[in-house]
Amino acid sequence: MKILIIAVMCLTGGLALADEGDETQTEGPIEELQIRLTTMEQINVTAEKMLVESSEDVDSEIESILLDAEALEGEEAEE
């Protein structure tokens, strides 16, 4: 009987220790992720660039589409 009680106590204690170990392992990566995401969020991404002339040949169809779209926006502004 004594042996059985001791065995149960050892088993219970072992399970409790194992659970604590699991919790430690899962908290670590989550905390690391949050820290990394916070660091990324704090990066100030605002560099501005001026439009440059493209070295590629002018695509007349694309230019025409853009002009027509711009004209539609002009109509929107008037409405």
């Binding site: 589409i65 027509d68 779209a69 711009e70 539609l72 926006e73 109509e75 929107e76």
Partner: peptide, 11 residues
């Protein structure tokens, strides 16, 4: 803005 956006998507 949907008007010009629609045009861009269609073309």
């Amino acid at each position: 803005k949907l008007k010009s956006l629609r045009y861009i998507l269609v073309k």
